[in-house]
Simulated scan of single mutants.
Amino acid sequence: MSPIFPLSVAALLACLSFSALGEKLRIVTEPWSPYVIVDGNHASGLDYDTTSIVFERLGIDVEWQFLPWKRCLMMLSEGEADGVLDIFKDEARADLLYPNEPLSSVDWVLFQANARPHAFNSMEDLHGLTVGVSPGYRYSPAFDNSTSFIREPAPSHEANFGKLIRDRIDLMVTDRLLGRQMIKRLKLEGQVSQLPVVLNHRGQYLALRPNAGMDLLVQRFSAELKRFKREPAYAELVERYTGEMSTARPEEPGESVDKTVEQQESGAL
């Protein structure tokens, strides 16, 4: 028997259904609205719903876990998860398998307390400031590697907004859509506002650990995702969760503020 035959069978089984092997695809991600929303035992969100629909069409059963981002990445690297949702393509994670098609996009932007405004047009404007970040997140090479300001992590997005209005940090960075929804949910209108310059624009992806058949599964996921994003059902999801109309596919790679100052409306992870 050719050694290629067993591998082909394994790939076919992995792509057709993990249920055929009595298994589920284990995917981890962090809740962050509007992409992944967890309310009690109910999960929803633009990227969660989209991924669930695509896998259902492919006949793949999924087991979801919602955890802090650093824990998600740890489970992925230790083989405790098969994939992670809403991750950026990154050279440091080149061992992962990414579909060609992104799920959505984020715009990393800065938020300020209106009582203590800060002008921001370039990285030099952050000199000497303390900026709230989320553990394990990557924003842009210029922002992540700068030594001219302090990056102070917080355990949650809510905590970062709390530190911002209590003058414990000067600015905070998060996704544009998430930030706007958090301001509304935390009733911070008039107290916190978004600065207009986009630090970075990035596509968000599903990524899988390399195993038998996973490369073929990633290809099938990408093809089905492209088909779904052309359907009215996808446009309805975008409008429901973001309040915006569905647009063209996210650009990848994104451009950092070092290269261009984007005046735009993102994604994150």
Rank of each mutant, 00 (worst) to 15 (best):
G243E: 11
R220K: 15
T247R: 08
Y234A: 01
P253I: 01
E224N: 06
T247V: 04
K226T: 11
R227D: 05
V257A: 08
E255A: 12
T247C: 08
F228G: 03
F228W: 05
M245F: 13
V238W: 01
K226D: 11
R230P: 07
R220E: 05
E239Q: 15
G254K: 04
E239D: 13
A223P: 07
S256Y: 08
D258E: 15
E255P: 12
E224H: 07
T260P: 01
R249H: 12
R249A: 11
L237V: 09
G243M: 06
F228D: 02
T260G: 04
R230W: 04
K259G: 06
A223W: 00
R227H: 10
P253K: 03
T260Q: 10
S246R: 10
G243C: 10
E239V: 09
V257Y: 02
E251N: 14
E251V: 10
S256G: 15
D258S: 09
K226C: 13
A248H: 04
A233R: 02
A235E: 03
T247Q: 15
A248W: 00
R240M: 14
E239P: 05
K226Q: 15
P232C: 05
S256I: 07
D258C: 10
R249L: 13
M245A: 14
M245L: 11
A223D: 08
V257C: 07
R230C: 12
S246D: 04
E224V: 02
P250R: 03
E251T: 03
Y241M: 03
S256D: 10
G254A: 06
G243P: 01
T242E: 02
E244Q: 12
M245W: 14
T242S: 12
R249C: 09
A223S: 10
R227N: 11
E236K: 13
A223F: 01
L225V: 02
E224F: 02
G243K: 08
E252G: 00
S256E: 10
A248K: 05
T260Y: 08
P253Y: 00
E239I: 12
T260R: 15
E251R: 15
F221Y: 08
R249M: 13
